[in-house]
Deep mutational scan, measured.
Amino acid sequence: SKIRITWGDKTWEWDGDDEEVWKRILEWARNLGDEELWRHVKEWVDK
């Protein structure tokens, strides 16, 4: 399956939905430097 994140007018996609993928997404969000996006992603990961 895919994980799709839409933020503003951008959309990103990742293949898979296991823990490793979420770790990569969390790292990606942090590297993007958008605090609010990172917080949202972290909330999803922690669920």
Rank of each mutant, 00 (worst) to 15 (best):
K47G: 12
W12P: 00
I25S: 00
D9Q: 04
R39M: 09
E20A: 12
L37M: 08
D15E: 13
E13V: 09
D18E: 13
N31W: 13
E36R: 04
I5V: 11
E20L: 14
W14Q: 01
E36V: 05
E36Q: 07
V41G: 00
E13G: 02
D9E: 12
W12T: 05
E43N: 12
W7Y: 10
T6P: 02
T11P: 01
G16N: 14
T6A: 06
W7S: 02
R39K: 14
I25P: 00
W22R: 05
W44L: 15
W14T: 01
T6L: 09
K2Y: 10
W22H: 06
T11W: 10
I25V: 14
E43Y: 09
L37E: 01
W7Q: 03
V45M: 15
R24H: 09
E20Q: 14
G33R: 04
W7I: 06
E43T: 07
E20H: 14
R24P: 01
G33P: 04
D17W: 09
K23Y: 13
D46S: 11
R4P: 01
T6D: 05
E43Q: 11
E19D: 12
E13P: 00
W28C: 02
D34K: 02
I5E: 00
E43R: 07
T11L: 08
R24V: 11
E19T: 14
E20T: 14
V21K: 02
R4G: 05
K10N: 10
R4F: 13
H40Y: 15
I3E: 01
L37P: 00
K42N: 10
R24E: 05
E35F: 04
K23A: 12
E19Q: 13
V21D: 02
E19P: 15
K10P: 01
R39L: 12
L32S: 15
T6C: 08
D46T: 09
E13S: 05
W14M: 03
R24M: 13
E20C: 06
D9F: 01
L32A: 14
W7L: 05
W14Y: 03
E36A: 07
R39N: 13
E35P: 14
K23T: 12
D18M: 13
S1H: 15
L32T: 15
I3N: 02
L26Y: 05
I5H: 01
G8Y: 15
W38C: 07
G8F: 11
G8S: 03
L26Q: 06
S1L: 15
K47M: 13
D18P: 12
I5W: 05
E36L: 08
G8H: 10
N31D: 13
V45T: 05
W12Q: 04
R30I: 11
K10Y: 10
G16M: 13
W22P: 02
I25Y: 00
E20F: 14
I25A: 03
K42T: 13
V45E: 05
V21Y: 02
D18T: 15
G33A: 08
T11V: 13
N31S: 14
E20K: 11
D15Y: 09
I25Q: 00
D9K: 02
E13L: 04
W7A: 03
D18R: 08
R4C: 10
E36T: 06
E43S: 09
V45R: 09
T11N: 06
K10H: 10
K2I: 07
H40G: 13
W14E: 01
G8I: 04
V41R: 00
E35I: 05
I3T: 04
W12F: 13
W44H: 06
D46P: 07
I3S: 01
K2F: 10
K2W: 11
W12I: 05
K10S: 12
T6F: 11
T11F: 11
H40K: 14
K2G: 06
T11Y: 13
G16D: 08
D18L: 13
W44S: 02
E13Q: 05
E19C: 03
R39H: 08
W28A: 01
T11Q: 09
T6G: 03
V41T: 01
W22I: 06
N31F: 10
W14H: 01
V21G: 04
R30V: 08
R30Y: 14
R4Q: 12
D18F: 10
W12H: 06
L37V: 05
R24C: 07
I3P: 01
D34V: 07
G8M: 09
E20P: 03
G8E: 09
L37G: 01
V21P: 03
E35N: 06
W44M: 12
W44E: 04
N31L: 14
V45A: 15
E35R: 03
W28E: 01
R39W: 09
D34M: 07
W28F: 06
N31A: 15
L37W: 07
I3V: 12
E36K: 04
E27P: 00
I25T: 01
E19G: 13
N31G: 13
R30P: 00
I5A: 01
R39S: 10
G8T: 02
S1T: 15
L26N: 02
L37R: 01
K47I: 14
K42W: 11
V45W: 13
L26D: 02
T6M: 10
K42C: 11
G8V: 03
D17I: 10
D15C: 06
A29W: 02
R24N: 11
E19F: 13
I3D: 00
L32I: 14
T6R: 09
G16K: 13
W44D: 01
E27D: 12
D46F: 05
E19V: 14
W14I: 04
D46K: 09
D18H: 12
R30Q: 08
D46M: 07
E43D: 14
W38A: 08
W7T: 02
I5F: 15
R39P: 02
I5D: 00
K10Q: 12
K47V: 12
E13R: 01
E13T: 08
G16S: 14
R30K: 11
S1N: 15
V21Q: 03
K2E: 02
E13F: 05
K42S: 13
K10D: 12
K42L: 13
L37S: 01
K2L: 08
W14R: 00
D15M: 08
K23R: 12
D17K: 11
W38F: 15
L37C: 04
V21L: 08
D15W: 07
W38Y: 15
W12N: 03
E35V: 04
H40L: 13
W7C: 03
W22D: 02
R24W: 08
E35T: 05
E20G: 14
W7P: 00
W22V: 05
E35H: 05
R4K: 14
D18Q: 11
R4I: 14
H40T: 12
G16V: 10
R24Q: 10
E35Y: 07
I5N: 00
L32K: 09
L37Q: 01
D9L: 01
W44R: 04
